[in-house]
Design a protein around this nucleic acid. Structure first.
Length: 541
RNA sequence: GAGCCUGUAGCUCAGUGGUAGAGCAUUCGACUUUUAAUCGAAUGGCCGUGGGUUCGACCCCCACCGGGCUCACCA
């Protein structure tokens, strides 16, 4: 503070915080919370967890949760240099509650309702159990994005005894846990609730029954089959029993000493209660982050039955994975509408961020830095926006990458798939977009008699190679001059009407590219085919 | 009933206590042998309302109004 003596008395607030302090990105904010937890506990490695319910196949929210957790984990690594692990935990020991609509052999499945998913045959017949099948789907999904994680099966953890010590501890605190959960339940469930769900030794069903007594010394609970009245004494360890959801989550946090887990806002109450249970067990819950759920185009909730959501497959048909990551990065605690129209913008946000990464002095505040996992690749960017590519693809009826590249080079000389590989990927996505959304919605107008003869004339002269006689240094110019000549000879007035005819009759749109250039890229023969097809189409009407 | 998100340009949305921003739309211009893409520019704002904190509030706090979502069975 050498300026004590300088006459800056009117300068604003000496004690105000520096206005230009770089904003800390949310993954680093979360990472700091994790680092703080580790410091308090004296831990030197961090465990990040993500969880998967038994019912669902992997979906766009699954991607979001793992991607976001991975960003926090990377930030943690960068911040502390400490080792860490991401555990992807599958609740495959949960009972099969209902038969899903979208699987084969549903009658077979019906016989196994209530049994752990890993105790239900695989309706697809490809894996050892339904649970194993779903696990494989989940892992394939995560692997397709290259996520770094360790898979964990609840069944395996229970059966192998990895949870035994924690389960006995839960048993010892059985009443305390009941007291935590009971006030949140309705009257009926309140009467029967226990965090311990014994697995029926005969039917293998996960039983929700009153626990009549607990024996901490022997590690067992006593209960009665409500149908037969038979009393059973069941060990809480070794996979003979599992825990009810909220207690299960808490026990897992306790047993594995989980340091970080995020979840959707639908689980706010579960996080609260599970945290209370962990404290009752004498430990601290992990650092938790609640993220908002996604809405559809109209701000309505996304439900599978309505089909108003956007699937990962759909997104990745029209834009690269980085764009989906970009969408997931932004403001996880804010509700966002997730529908088709957000894709181009997410892609361009990513492109801009990737470009800014090279010039910024705060790379760790840049989403692209996180999406790249802290590494800055050489060929990440695109010199042209995705929105522009989509427009271009529409205007020129881009049926293949070569056509699009032809127009890209027209004003970006030197651009090739080799020196702009990310752009090359975007081109392929733009083609898919054109194919599915633009081409499908085309409205082709019938040609008037005068237009018919003009089109016929153009086709004939194209076929004969007559354009070679026209002036111009390039094929495109010669073709353009031929098109003009036909329009003038056929006395279109204004001449623009001739071009309107070409766009509306041949391309099914009101506007289009310079036609000579279009023919050159699309191909003379194919253009002739286009004309003949249009004339034949009108003939039939 | 409990909780969460949200309200900023015509539309969709960014916005980090210090001059209100982008894309699209609109209008004008440049380029073009017709266009479109593209490029340049302009237009467009009581930042939901009312209080409070502050030298200063879109931003922080409180209340209210509007728009949504989630949980109160299971997980």
């Amino acid at each position: 503070m050498a300026d004590e003596s300088t006459p800056q008395a009117n300068a604003p607030q000496a004690n105000a915080p520096q206005a230009n302090a770089p904003q800390v990105s949310w993954p680093f904010r979360e990472a700091e919370r994790v680092a703080e937890r580790l410091a308090q506990k004296g831990k030197t490695h961090a465990l990040f967890e993500t969880g998967y319910g038994p019912s669902g196949l992997p979906h766009i929210g699954t991607f979001g949760e793992v991607a976001r957790t991975t960003w926090v984990r990377n930030a943690f690594t960068r911040l502390t240099g400490l080792p860490s692990k991401l555990l992807a935990f599958s609740d495959d020991m949960d009972g099969l509650r209902k038969v899903p609509d979208n699987v084969p052999n549903r009658d077979m499945l019906r016989q196994f309702l209530g049994r752990p998913l890993t105790d239900v045959p695989d309706p697809f017949g490809t894996h050892a159990s339904f649970g194993a099948h779903n696990n494989a789907r989940l892992r394939a999904f995560l692997d397709s994005f290259g996520f770094d994680y360790e898979f964990a099966s609840s069944t395996e953890y229970y059966v192998s005894g990895k949870f035994d010590a924690a389960l006995l501890h839960v048993l010892a605190n059985h009443d305390k846990i009941v007291e935590i959960i009971r006030p949140t339940l309705g009257p009926e469930r309140r009467a029967t609730y226990s965090p311990i769900l014994p697995i029926h030794p005969r039917t293998r069903i996960v039983m929700q029954v009153p626990i009549e007594s607990t024996d901490v010394e022997h590690g067992t609970v006593t209960w009665s089959d409500p149908e037969t009245g038979t009393r059973y004494e069941t060990a809480v360890t070794g996979g003979s029993a599992k825990l009810q959801w909220k207690a299960d989550w808490a026990m897992r946090w306790y047993a594995l000493d989980v340091d970080y887990e995020m979840s959707g806002k639908d689980l706010i109450d579960s996080v609260k209660l599970s945290s209370q249970i962990v404290r009752a067990l004498g430990a601290e819950p992990p650092v938790c982050l609640t993220y908002e759920l996604f809405l559809d185009e109209n701000g309505q909730k996304i439900s599978k039955s309505k089909g108003n959501g956007l699937s990962v497959e759909q997104w990745l048909t029209y834009a690269p994975p980085e764009s989906l990551a970009q969408f997931m990065y932004h403001a996880p605690q804010r509700a966002k509408r997730l529908f088709f129209d957000v894709i181009p913008r997410a892609a361009d946000d990513f492109i801009n961020n990737a470009a800014a990464l090279r010039t910024t002095n705060d790379p760790q505040g840049n989403p692209a830095w996180h999406i790249f996992g802290g590494k800055i690749p050489d060929d990440a960017g695109s010199p042209i926006s995705f929105t522009m590519l989509l427009n271009l693809a529409s205007v020129i009826n881009a049926e293949n990458p070569d056509m699009l590249w032809g127009f890209i080079r027209a004003y970006m000389p030197g651009a090739t798939p080799e020196n702009a590989p990310f752009l090359a990927k975007l081109v392929a996505y733009a083609i898919a977009y054109y194919r599915d959304f633009v081409a499908a919605g085309k409205q082709f107008r019938a040609a008037s008699p005068a237009e018919r003869s003009a089109l016929q004339d153009l086709a004939t002269r194209l076929k004969a190679g007559a354009y070679q006689e026209f002036p111009g240094e390039t094929e495109a110019e010669k073709l353009q001059n031929l098109v003009y000549a036909v329009g003038k000879e056929q006395k279109f007035s204004p001449l623009k009407a001739w071009f309107d005819c070409l766009y509306q009759v041949l391309l099914g749109q009101t506007e289009g590219p310079r036609f000579g250039g279009f023919i050159a890229l699309y191909g003379v023969e194919k253009t002739v085919g286009l004309i003949e097809a249009a004339l034949a189409r009108d003939e039939r009407k």
